[in-house]
């Protein structure tokens, strides 16, 4: 069973293709003291899909606000786009979150 939780009113999905935005969930389980006081998650629109993911890069902890979306490639079996951290260049599959190469 999935634990669906409401996102507070006023939060909207990103409209610009490939530009990472944030949603403040304000959910206790998503908040993290100093690093994420609003329980923010990141979201990006790409190829008619919305992808939602952690607001900070797991590798360097920098917010993913300037992360770049790359098209699917053989690493993601041509099925899912990829996300690259603008700061440390770590790259992840937006299909399953796995760290690539």
């Amino acid at each position: 069973s999935l634990n669906w939780c409401p996102i507070p009113a006023g939060q909207t999905l990103p409209t610009t293709e490939g530009k990472v935005g944030f949603l403040d969930t304000n959910l206790p389980t998503m908040k993290n003291g100093n690093t994420n006081p609003t329980g923010a998650v990141a979201a990006v629109r790409y190829d008619d899909n919305i992808y939602c993911f952690a607001s900070a890069c797991p590798s360097c902890q920098v917010p993913l606000s300037k992360a770049k979306i790359l098209p699917a490639n053989e690493e993601t079996k041509q099925r899912a786009p990829r996300l690259t951290c603008d700061f440390c260049k770590a790259t992840y599959s937006l299909g399953d979150g796995s760290k690539l190469q």
Binding site: L2, N3, W4, C5, P6, I7, A9, Q11, T12, L13, L23, T25, L27, T29, M30, V41, A43, I50, Y51, C52, F53, A54, C57, P58, S59, L83, A90, Y92, S93, L94, D96, G97, S98, K99
Partner: peptide, 21 residues
């Protein structure tokens, strides 16, 4: 470092929903 955590989003009656652990 581990994988990037992904979240599932939904919409019901114009309200955004998210699946959390």
């Amino acid at each position: 470092s581990g994988p990037l955590k992904l979240y599932k989003l939904g919409e019901q009656k114009g309200k955004l929903l998210i699946v959390v652990d």
